[in-house]
């Protein structure tokens, strides 16, 4: 928690990997200041190349989305909604109420309970770590790109032509390298407001629910948790608190793991194959 300083789970050395504790991120936009320290810390630690986009005009978001070279991404929303109990300034139209809020959310790979990318990877490059995070082994990935279309959150992507790692698929590693040596993820460590909270998943989930109650009480009516446990994804290890609807944060309201389509598709494959077999043999036999 903010104020715990070096005792905060964002800073404290830990043994989660050794003790196989499932860990997670709880990201809370209501305290995010949009400083992007997480985004930069991630790129710095993981030596991710910069992608120079032009100025987008999408508020202060110039990196647009998660991708092969953006593993943390801060979204900037400008909404005509009141922000909790805050004392609002004089309004543009001169006549009193004209509510406005600027919301920031630091997006990241969700480290799904059931991960589309992992299920789909034909080389076994994507694996589950001791802390239940989803990790891409760069030395195995051959860049087939199947994970890219299998992620229901549009997170993982193939790095087309920039070094390092050209041609491979990349996403948040959950700083596995840091975690094995007892360090906390670079993004959480850098976050000055602890809008990103790193820690054992169980604790974070409790904390998350508490936080929502707190905010509701403070007249943040549309505060809710985003953690699709009821869908086939069965929950995410990097979950979020949202003000308003998921789609406003480019989060799918009802994400599904593609593997739920397997039965139907395979069924159709076998049926078609047999149909073709039988049909062809018959026509040749009888004509």
């Amino acid at each position: 928690m903010i104020g715990e300083g070096i005792l905060s789970s964002n800073q404290k050395p830990h043994k989660h990997v050794q003790e196989e504790v499932p860990v997670g991120f709880f990201t809370d936009p209501t305290v995010c200041i949009g400083c992007k320290a997480c985004e930069v810390a991630c790129k710095e630690w993981n030596n991710v190349p910069a992608e120079v986009n032009p100025w987008t005009g999408h508020s202060y978001d110039n990196t647009l989305s998660l991708g092969a070279s953006t593993w943390r991404h801060v979204l900037f929303l400008e909404e005509a909604k009141p922000r909790g109990p805050q004392i609002a300034g004089p309004m543009g139209n001169g006549n009193g109420q004209d509510p406005f809020r600027w919301v920031f959310l630091s997006d990241v790979c969700k480290h799904c309970e059931v991960a589309g990318c992992l299920e789909s990877c034909p080389t076994g490059a994507i694996m589950r770590t001791e802390t239940q995070s989803v990790y891409v082994q760069d030395d195995v990935c051959n860049g087939c790109g199947y994970c890219v279309v299998s992620c229901p959150f549009g997170v993982i992507d193939r790095r087309e032509n920039t070094a390092p790692g050209k041609g491979g698929a990349f996403k948040c590693t959950f700083c596995y390298d840091r975690q094995i040596s007892g360090l906390t993820p670079a993004c959480a460590k850098a976050c000055p407001t602890e809008s990103i909270r790193f820690g054992p998943l169980k604790d974070l989930q409790v904390e998350g629910r508490k936080r929502v109650q707190e905010l509701r009480a403070q007249s943040y009516q549309d505060a809710q948790l985003y953690d699709p446990t009821e869908t086939s994804v069965r929950g995410i290890h990097a979950f979020f608190l949202l003000l308003g609807r998921p789609e406003n944060y480019r989060l799918p309201p009802r994400p599904e793991v593609p593997t739920i389509y397997l039965a139907a598709a395979y069924g159709s494959v076998v049926a078609t194959a047999l149909l073709a077999l039988a049909f062809v043999l018959c026509v040749f036999a009888f004509l």
Binding site: G124, C141, N142, G143, G145, R159, E160, L262
Partner: peptide
């Protein structure tokens, strides 16, 4: 040809995963 890292084509045969049509 289409692989990001063509030299690793054979990694496809590292594993067999029924849940991955690609595999």
């Amino acid at each position: 040809w289409d692989l990001g890292r063509p030299t690793r084509f054979l990694n496809m045969l590292r594993v067999f995963k029924y849940q991955s049509p690609m595999s």
